[in-house]
Each structure stands twice: as structure tokens, then as C-alpha cells.
Write a protein that binds this DNA or RNA. Sequence first.
DNA 1: GGGCCCGCAGGG
DNA 2: CCCTGCGGGCCC
Length: 705
Amino acid sequence: MICKQKPPEALTLTCKTCVTPWHLACLSAPPQTLADAAAWECPDCTFVASDSNPAFPVGSGSSEDLIAAIRAIESDQSLSDKEKARRRQEVMSGSVVKSAAADGVSGKRESNDVLGLLDGSFNCSFCMQLPERPVTTPCGHNFCLKCFQKWTGQGKRTCAICRSTIPSKMASQPRINSALVIAIRMAKMSKSINAGGPPKVYNFVHNQNRPDKAYTTDRAKKSGMANASSGKIFVTVPSDHFGPIPAENDPERNQGVLVGETWVDRMECRQWGAHIPHVAGISGQSDYGAQSVALSGGYQDDEDHGEWFLYTGSGGRDLSGNKRTNKDQSFDQKFEKQNEALRFSCRKGYPVRVVRSHKEKRSSYAPEIGVRYDGIYRIEKCWRKVGIQGYKVCRYLFVRCDNDPAPWTSDDHGDHPRPLPVIKELKDATDVTERKATPSWDYDEEVNCWMWKKPPPESRKLGEEILEDGSTKTVRRRAKSMSVRERLLKEFSCLICRKVMLLPVTTPCAHNFCKVCLESAFAGQTYIRQRTCEGRRTLRAQKNVMKCPSCKNDISDFLQNPQVNRELMSVIESLQEQEQSKEMEDNVESIEETCDADEENIQSGEETSDADEKNVELSEETDDADGKSDGIAVFTEISNKESEILGEDKEGKEVIKTPTTETKSQKSSKRKEPDGGDKISEVKVTQKPDAGVETRSKKPKVGTE
DNA sequence: GGGCCCGCAGGG
DNA sequence: CCCTGCGGGCCC
């Protein structure tokens, strides 16, 4: 911590209490004898036990117990090292404080007193409650952030308890005491009997044992991390992965990336996959969405309220002269590149990971040191406004929606859906985008957690699979699917013009045509649309004349008033949208021998009867909830288009029908082999011999599956 | 503490 | 292959 270097093993000393490694050379009072070294306790443990740091007065009692308990475990000869480690962990996490007390190790008080103890020393002096979002003055007194801000907002500059002066920096930029947050949360947990397992411990992640870390190449002229290359990425999610990083993608620790995890710098944060780019603030692709953002104080328009914040897009700055950043904006930001990626995630309601950096100085919620993962947020709205510097900036409203509590709250539960904050600047905003469709990541009232309500987007990256011998093999994460264009033409072409349908209509005999094509096919019998003013029709005599161009069924009645198949329409529209966004999978080369079998699969799939293929794809599409909600969103567009093209329909009476029931039943009745749909998910290439990986217990809360 | 400048990674 | 980027070391 002092020399900021990784000490060689020989110079590492491990604390017997907390097992943290320390650099021998950096200790002010290193142990003198070997025996001393074996029983050595780090300054943290010694300090807590002997003194009561007013800023974090855990030491005033409960932690004495804790340390005594740990010492008892350490000195118990009957325990193996592994067992000791396990017990230590239990004690640290508060789950067995009671049993430690029962052991007679520290029989002073019951564990349930912890909260009572906290009540005495931690309470906010204004509201007399356990502080919510606690801030701690240099004189060691704790207050709720809000209470404190109210106090300083009245111009008070002295501590409400001891009248010590509050430094002006503290008054203007109070920081939440995250250690206190954890202490309070732990105390609450030990109080509640069925807290649902031990609380999570939020550790600073030391990468002592990591196989690889960021390094400087020969080319780099500076040592340290300034010009470093990234070390190994420890998690196995692809870089375009959305949402939390689950335990099954964390082979190093098998715990996933936890809310509150903190890394020393952006490079290390990157290695754990929370936020991959090591300079840029936004991780994302304009045609795919944004996965994560960093709040690092780079843009002065940012506004942080913890559970929600206003984020500023990137760009608008002159980076000439080989600069990486620039405080001054010199032109307008636009919704392009990363800014567009954020807007994409907003529209889709994707989960966006958020990290806060110590470099954000104006936010109470930023960590004191390092870069911290604060969990999942959703972008509820975005817009543009004229920023502080006078140029237009892209703006995003982020609202937290994580299943774990934020690092600044002592709640033991995550977020519940909350009403959106009122944003004043929205009244002067332009280019406002709000999500119309239902969000992909949403709160499930039945299981009481946030989860994927629609399938997460398929990764477009290649992945690496670790084989048994430790080597890696590049694999594709999903099968090559039919190109969107191919699919459009194959599934959704008009049986008359053979092009992708414009305003599709579905006959009762389940054949699809462009509305215009079908009508013009019977153009000689224009009486379909000839109506008297009273609406009296004159086609009775012509009945049976009009037959479906495809199957010759009588469709005269249908032709009197053919309705656009809105469901089909929205499917086509979303596919066309996809096509425009150029899904990359089409271009992914198949990967050698491992894929051969799957390629065949696809080939044969293409060659099997059209009907089956079609059903598979169709069912897939309709299962995708996107279709439904987007269907509503595009609805008005359709009816506008329709009247534009047909130049009629002024009656305005026509009740808009939801997708015709006959189409639906037709589809489902035709769906003979629903199993056919599996081919896509099955084509995961070359399973690791150890199939257990797939079945390993998954964190049920995170619905990534 | 401010400013300069660098290597690097990833988007396009 | 060029452009962009809410890092970070180091000099002043």
C-alpha cells in the first residue's frame, strides 16, 4: 500500500488475524523474530482491537469480540487450515458470532446486541436513527447524508455534536462512509433471524494471486499503468455481455462480480469485466447497445443521486494533439457511436452495468479510492440539451434496478421499481427518446427480482473455451443463422409479387400477400371497394368468383375488407430493422472442424420442407416479446402508411383489430415439430468434456438464462 | 494540483 | 487502418 508494488513472496508477511498479506519493507514496526512474524498482526487488526477510531468505531466492542473469536479459531489446534479459513469467514460474515460467544470465547454479550450497540454510537444526531447514507465528519460523528446536507445548507460549518469545524471540502462534497454502511448492514443482518444466508462481504479485490495482470510492453516509455496493456480478463463473459456477471462466468472465484467490488484502477476493473474500455466511459456498439458506463467526473454536466443519475454522452471535444480527454467542449454531441449505443439500450430496456470512480469528485456516491461496481441501471430516457459549456450534449437518465443493495444503502435488499424522478431540464430538451416497448430487463413481481423478461441479445463475439489441458480454443457462441434478408424473403414474401410484403394481408386460407397486390389481382372487379354512400355493397352476384391466387379457395368475403395483418407487419418491420443494423453473425466464418456437424444441421434444416422451417422461425419470432410490444409501438405508423398508400379509408370508423385469430391458430396448428427450434441453441460448439460446468448451480436471482 | 503526453483497446 | 476515448505517470 505504501510502495505500491507487489512485494516478492519472500517479503510478504501475512496477518494471523485477517490473513491479509503485507509488504515487510513497508511496515513501520516489522516483527523482529521469526516467532513474532508467525504471530504477527497487521496494523489494521492491532489498531481496531486497541483503539476506537471515532470515524469508524467498530472497535468499541463488537469487533473486539470478532477478533477474539478469530484468535480462538486460529489457536485451535484441532482444526485444519481449511476449516480455520471457513470458520474465519463465517465469523467475519457475522453468521456465527453467536456460536463464538457460546464457545465462551467472548461471553460478554449476545450477538443480537450488535444492533443495540450500534444504536448507541452510530446514530445520526439529527434524526436519531441509524444513519441513512452515512457521512462521517473528521471529528468522528455520523450523520445521514440528507441531514448533514440540510445542516450545511443552512450555512453551518461546525459539527452538530462537538462543534469542531467541518472542512469546507467536506461541507460541499460529503462522501458516504461505505465502511459504516457495511457495518450497519451486517448488524442488521445478524439481527434479523432469517436474513437469507450470510451477508456479502464487500472486499477490495487484491489481485495477489492472479495469473496475469496489466503489464507494460517494451514499447511503452512509462512504467506503471499509464501506458499499460491489459492483463488477463478473469471472467468468461464476452465483452459485449449485458447485465450482471454471474458466478458461472467467474472461474477464478466462482462468485461473479458483486455489487460493491472495488478495483484500484480502470485496468483492473476491466479485467473483471465490469467495464471493459480502459479510457472510454461508455462500453457499447451503436447497432447493438451499451453494456456499461463509468462515472468518473469527466463531464461536468453529470448529476449523481445514487439510485438515479444523469449521464452525459461522449464526444464534442477537441482531441487533437494526441489527447485522450479534454475538459473543454468545442462542438455539439450527437447520437452516434457510443451515444447511440446508450440510446439503443434505452429503447430496449437493457441492463447497463455502472461503475463509479474515485475521480468523480462532485458525487457523494463515488468511492474514496479506486473504481467500484455499483450494479445494474436502466436508461429510462435520453435527450439532448445545451450543456454547461454551451454546446449540445446527449443526456441519459439512469435508474438503478439491481437485485443487490447499492453500496451506500444499509438496506438488505435491492431496488424495487420506483417512480421516475422529475427532470427539470427535460422541458428544454430536444430529441427526447423514451422507451415504448416493454423493457428487456424488468422487475418480476412473482419472484420479486429483476430479470431478463425477454431473451438477452446474442453475443456477437467469439469466445474462448478452456480445454482440459489448459489450452484454449476459439469457438463461436451460436450457430450461423439464416441471414436476415434470406429469412425475410423466404418467410415473408408476397405470393404474387415475390417480394417482401408491404402491408401484409393473410387470407382465411392462410396465404399472405401484399394488400396492394391482392387488390390489384382483382382489379377488374373493383367493385370490392365500390360502395354506395349508404355502404350498400353490390357484389352478391359475383360471389365465388374471387379465388385465392395460391390455393383457389373462395376468398370473396375476405376481399370485401381485407385487414392488414398487424402481427406479421410488426415481425417484418423488426426484421427489416435488424437487417438495417446489419447483424454480424451472417459474416462470422464457421470455425473449422468443431462446427462441421452443426453446419450440416443448418444445411439440412434449410432443405427440409419450407413449412416446417417457416414455423420454427415464426414461432421464434412470436415468442420474442419484442414483437408484441413493438407491434403496439409501430401501430400508428402502419395505419398512417396504409392510408397514405391506399389513399382512402377516410371513414375512420374501422375498428383496429388485433392480429386475426385465424392466423394465430393456423400457426400453432401447423407447428408440428416444435423441437426443430432447438437447433439454434443446441449448436454450442464443442462442449468441454466436463459437462458439469453447464449444470453447476446458478445464482437463481440473476436470470441470465 | 494542473497539464502534457503516452500506449493501448475497441469501434467503425 | 484510422479514429476515439470519463487513464494515469510524471513533470512543473
